[in-house]
Design a protein around this nucleic acid. Structure first.
Length: 505
RNA sequence: UCCUCCUUAGCUCAGUUGGUUAGAGCGUCGGACUGUUAAUCCGCAGGUCCUAGGUUCAAGUCCUAGAGGAGGAGCCA
């Protein structure tokens, strides 16, 4: 039995393959079956002249997602996605499929999420999950080749590690327990044992966030490195992101093509250095006080707004032209074609108008940004808009960062944290920094954050026995997949997403 | 928790100022076409206009409440 991905090795040969019929088109005496088997997609042609009445009749009755075993010859055809097609000589039905609900046409997000177990079979989802898989592989490769040890942190925890977020409560043999929101503190302990470690596991946040970039359950990669300061940390982050994006670009060409992802950003990432901005510099850029490439953020946003307005005008003009043609009277086929185009343009206008409405708000909130605050979604958008590779922002006001973040000796108001903001509006994909080693500062901070001291005694031991400078970071897997795939929703980047209002299927 | 928007055929949506029998595309099904790429073309079928109440001679359309959904804020990866 040959998998579709291996068709290239069997050109001109007769083979057997099996899979699901994802689509069927027909012409007189010809049936075009699009077969998928998980390894890829291939067009299979059933020709009446080749197979005879009986098999041809079977082929013409195949419905979407019925499963089949096919026998046939592999033929090279440049027009096909994998480059090969199958000329069928025999066909066996394995399982029927009646009224398959997910068609190859448009659906709304709610319908698709209700049918997630079937939606996963469609092309786009296949491409996303393949890229997710490759990304996981690349992440492991990077850390393994750099000498990191994979050591996972516990999921049941007795308390909130950072105190700020709402956690999912659980019951651990009649003792209250919470699902971990981060493995970082345990990662620090393991780094003191193993030198360089990384964890790769699920994390849970009970935030009632309904946005395109939040999940209640998501996967996070958290490296932790002994004898590293924040500058070394940023060096690792940069080479890490360059490695994983380069790997996916190299090994997922078909998938990126299926997603129609513009890959120029990844080509730039390979060669350009990531800008490293202090929080102060980033604030100046947001507020329009500091120029990037000769322009302030306000000027760039105003130019964007102008472009959007021009685009809206152009769309409106095209719509009225097309409507005039329809009003003048045309054949049904032509009319449908024009109407489709009009609907597309109207949808575009709707999206553009939302954007156009947002930009003045961004400009306003950017101009009025208050020093000392954390960046909001719009501030992230403003700053990433100024560069075309990921941006690292470091040296943050310590009040807005977690208790374990190391204070800057030269400026005690600052903590040595770093956030990495992905371009194209995808926002924060990495958060990390150097960890506090001063026992007294930690005690102070734990009290300040009103955290239960007794739960942190083991953590403080790490400072009592051979404390060393160390640093690390966390990468959100799904946000990274969303960015690399260019998806609108983070929900598409995990097989069965869990978020506020979604527990099934 | 707060703000904005949405709920009409299996799916995606249109429905003007409240006014005759509720519209399209796609999908399904039937038919045509020997190389289609979300094929195309012709035809049939398909409706509790989210729910409850109200205003009115008349409600898909207006009002009130509720349910569900989308986006955003906060928070974050």
């Amino acid at each position: 039995m040959i998998q579709i991905k291996d068709f290239k090795d069997y050109e001109g040969q007769n083979i057997q393959t099996q899979g699901w019929v994802t689509n069927r088109r027909s012409s007189k005496g010809l049936e075009f079956l699009i077969l998928r088997d998980g390894s890829g997609f291939a067009q299979c042609i059933v020709n009446l002249e080749d197979v005879g009445e009986e098999i041809f009749a079977k082929a013409s009755k195949l419905t979407q997602e019925s499963s089949v075993k096919l026998t046939g010859k592999v033929v090279k055809d440049e027009r096909q996605i994998g480059g090969y097609e199958l000329h069928v000589s025999d066909l066996e039905l394995i399982g029927t499929s009646v009224d398959y609900p997910v068609s190859n046409k448009e659906h709304g997000i709610e319908f698709l999420m209700d049918h997630r177990h079937l939606w996963l079979r469609s092309r786009r989802q296949w491409a996303i999950l393949k890229i997710r898989n490759r990304l996981i592989f690349a992440i492991n490769n990077f850390f393994q080749k750099e000498g990191f040890v994979q050591t996972d942190s516990p999921i049941f925890t007795p308390n909130a590690a950072e105190g700020s977020t709402t956690l999912f409560a659980s019951n651990f043999y009649d003792e209250p327990a919470y699902l971990a929101q981060t493995g970082q503190l345990y990662g620090e302990a393991m780094a003191m044992a193993m030198g360089k470690i990384y964890t790769f596991g699920p994390t849970f946040r009970a935030e009632k966030s309904k946005t395109r970039r939040h999940l209640s359950e998501f996967w996070m990669i958290e490296p932790e490195m002994a004898f590293h300061d924040n500058d070394m940390n940023m060096d690792v982050i940069e080479s890490f992101i360059k490695y994983i994006t380069g790997d996916v670009l190299e090994n997922c060409k078909t998938e990126l093509e299926m997603l129609e992802r513009d890959t120029t950003v990844f080509k730039k990432i390979a060669t350009e250095k990531f800008p490293r901005l202090t929080y102060d510099e980033a604030v100046d850029i947001i507020k329009g006080k500091k120029k990037v490439n000769g322009k302030t953020s306000i000027e760039v946003l105003e130019a964007d707004l102008n472009d959007i307005k021009l685009q809206i005008e152009a769309n409106k003009k095209e719509i009225s032209e097309k409507e005039k043609i329809i009003a003048g009277g045309v054949k049904k086929g032509k009319r449908n074609f024009l109407q489709n185009r009009i609907d597309t343009l109207k949808n575009e206008i709707r999206k553009l108008e939302i954007k156009a409405g947002n930009i003045p708000k961004w400009i306003d909130s950017a101009a009025n940004f208050e020093y000392g605050n954390d960046f909001g979604g719009s501030d992230e958008t403003v700053i990433t808009r100024m560069f075309d590779v990921p941006v690292m922002v470091y040296n943050w006001p310590h009040q807005i960062k977690a208790f374990y973040m190391k204070r800057d000796a030269e400026n005690p108001e600052l903590a040595k944290g770093v956030d990495v903001l992905a371009p194209e509006g995808y926002g924060e994909i990495v958060g990390g920094g150097e960890r506090e080693t001063d026992l007294n500062l930690l005690l102070e901070k734990i009290e300040e954050h009103k955290l239960p001291m007794k739960e942190f005694e083991w953590y403080l031991d790490l400072r009592r026995y051979g404390s060393v400078p160390h640093a690390g970071f966390g990468l959100g897997l799904e946000r990274t997949v969303a960015w690399i795939c260019g998806t609108q929703h983070i929900r598409e980047t995990i097989p069965f997403p869990r978020y506020y209002g979604r527990l099934r299927p």
